[in-house]
Design a binder for these strands. Sequence first.
DNA 1: CCCCGATCTGACACGGCGTCATGACCCTAG
DNA 2: CTAGGGTCATGACGCCGTGTCAGATCGGGG
Lengths: 232, 232
Amino acid sequence: MVDDDRHLRAVTDPGGGQADPAAELPAVDGRVPGRRGQATRRKLLDCTKEMLDQGSYRDLKVVDIARRAGTSPATFYQYFPDVEAAVLVLAEEVAVRATQLTELVDGEWKGRGGVDTARRLVRGFLDYWEDNRPVLRVVELATEEGDLRFRNLRVRSLNAVTRALSEVVGQFQRNASVPSEIDPMATAGVLVAMLAHTAAHRYGFEFWGIRRDALEASLSRTVYWTVTGQKQ
Amino acid sequence: MVDDDRHLRAVTDPGGGQADPAAELPAVDGRVPGRRGQATRRKLLDCTKEMLDQGSYRDLKVVDIARRAGTSPATFYQYFPDVEAAVLVLAEEVAVRATQLTELVDGEWKGRGGVDTARRLVRGFLDYWEDNRPVLRVVELATEEGDLRFRNLRVRSLNAVTRALSEVVGQFQRNASVPSEIDPMATAGVLVAMLAHTAAHRYGFEFWGIRRDALEASLSRTVYWTVTGQKQ
DNA sequence: CCCCGATCTGACACGGCGTCATGACCCTAG
DNA sequence: CTAGGGTCATGACGCCGTGTCAGATCGGGG
């Protein structure tokens, strides 16, 4: 109980390493690891990811990660307070890549080009999810379980796209194409929810014999209409 | 290892109790419990639900359920092979209530009435989720983790609504309101995904200051347009 | 080649899991 | 009302993963 502030210290006491905000200052027990330490830390992270690619989050044990990394469980705890913490770092890395989605919203939405923009956005979402499925699965999961760390992460990564989309909706609203009583942010949020959930459950759709083309088409159509308020 | 067929037996050997398909023949070790047994089983289920209402699924321990029910852990294992099994029964009960959603699709979709039908469907979804949030959370969770039992359950409950919606889309397609190259089932699936995900993350939306009214409005608008292919 | 901090790990206490054998309970036939 | 037999509950146990030490090991600068 006396040592209960270890994790806290790791967070509150940057130990002078705060200079580089990009490198998640990895906390051992308050110190910043050297070259060798960094390597093991990375190896542990990689192994965590590999395990996640294979089995479920629920069955992700520290022992297994350690074994796969060829170290002892104790070593794992040297770098992360628990499994969640390790996964959180992975999630952070994935969240950064979500910015690529925001860029897809920047494009022509008026007229025929709008359909293409919508389609590109849809493709981007499906691809992004495909590339990072295992980690995103956990983010979704942990968020739903009420974990604030993951929730904030999720909000941060989807916030940008949502705001961008909401912006576009707002334009078409001033245009009188979208009814004035509609809340642009709500609309954008709902669309993002649709994209995220569809992407997450894609293989569930294929189970019903629905191919990716058809999915893209339906999603694009709905996105385009909802955003622009216009028939394509 | 000789006894490894215990659970199997529970499933494959109805023991003559198959007459009532509504009563999930509860398996102890192959026998069907009597009055007292039924009672404890129910109590365990109820306590499981209560625990689920409070804490996360990950932290749901057999010990805690048993303690709350005022029995020993061993008793729990008399009725369920593991925690998942108990939750699955609860999920089954919730899934049955999903039929109420299908009924909401039956209604006038043409003209002004269609907007109301869409709105009622949206409301139904949000309410259904609100009423059964904790259990549905686990269904979503377990499905995403690849658990087939939960996945099938999820498919079964959402399948009905999706098919019904797809039916309506098909009508408007023959009407030439919806483009012929669109797959009705894909479209319906995408809409259901949107509704489910939005309902599941509703409190995430409120965090952004988006009220339920706005959410309903945006959802209804998108549903109506996508289904009917017509401006409201 | 030695030294010292950085890094790793064996050993341990703890707690939940799942499984028995056994005992308590209840109902009913005699 | 009481013994017998099935129903139900549980104490006790072995197993395994967690998280935490103290102490062993490593490896690069002096």
